[in-house]
């Protein structure tokens, strides 16, 4: 026969064990004291995209060639790119304006998947709230550009893989240029992506109206 009230005592024992345990077993307390203690994000966490540059100077080291594939693929169309030109008005492979409207961005990561130059990657920075609804939520080139070391810091595995791939491609290219006399060789994997890039960047001098992010 069951003793009346024994269930209550059992429940009281459980709560007492939890209460006393929370003082002696720190693994029980899973609360993160957020502003002081930053959350440990999983390695593949992604928030908004950023641009990678090599070396120390963001202007010369920028990997982006302004091919505008990401701009075209972006589902909510939050990327706006204008290609840079030299003094003669000749387009150069570098963006003059690169804006991402993070109030529109949906963190899908498609821009990262399509980028043939490994120049755009997902950031883990999430403290982006501001008092200004418009200009501070449009990240321009100066806020987007971050060094490759930062990429290694936030996504070590992914960054190492990317670096390996770039290194392998560079070696292949070197080998190809070294063996110039054989013309069949220079069909490197990076080659197919470059042909569409050149005509695009020259012809599409679209007005800003095509990107809703820039107009808002």
């Amino acid at each position: 026969m069951q003793i009346p009230g024994s269930g209550i005592l059992k429940g009281l024992a459980v709560t007492a064990r939890n209460m006393i345990g929370s003082y002696f077993e720190p693994e029980r307390l899973i609360t993160q004291q957020y502003p002081e203690e930053k959350p440990k994000l999983p390695e593949r966490a992604r928030v908004f995209p950023f641009l990678i540059y090599d070396g120390s100077d963001p202007e010369t080291g920028i990997r982006c060639t302004s091919c505008k594939i990401c701009e075209k693929e972006c589902p909510p169309q939050c990327i706006y790119i204008v290609q840079d030109r030299d003094q003669n008005g000749k387009p150069i492979k570098r963006p003059k304006i690169f804006n991402i409207d993070i109030s529109v961005c949906m963190s899908c990561g498609i821009c990262v998947e399509v980028c043939p130059f490994d120049s755009i990657r997902m950031d883990t920075e999430f403290e982006l709230s501001s008092f200004d609804r418009f200009s501070s939520l449009i990240l321009d080139k100066s806020r987007l550009l971050k060094p490759n070391s930062y990429y290694h810091q936030i996504h070590p595995t992914e960054a190492a893989q990317t670096d390996e791939r770039i290194e392998a491609e560079r070696r292949k290219k070197q080998a190809a240029s070294a063996a110039k006399n054989t013309p069949s060789k220079p069909t490197t994997p990076s080659q197919p992506s470059t042909p569409p890039q050149t005509p695009n960047s020259i012809q599409t001098e679209r007005p800003p109206a095509s990107t809703p992010a820039a107009t808002s």
Binding site: N18, M19, S22, R28, I30, Q33
Partner: peptide
């Protein structure tokens, strides 16, 4: 505080 500790909060 006590309720929180029972629920393993701070």
């Amino acid at each position: 505080k006590i309720l929180a500790r029972v629920q393993n909060r701070l």
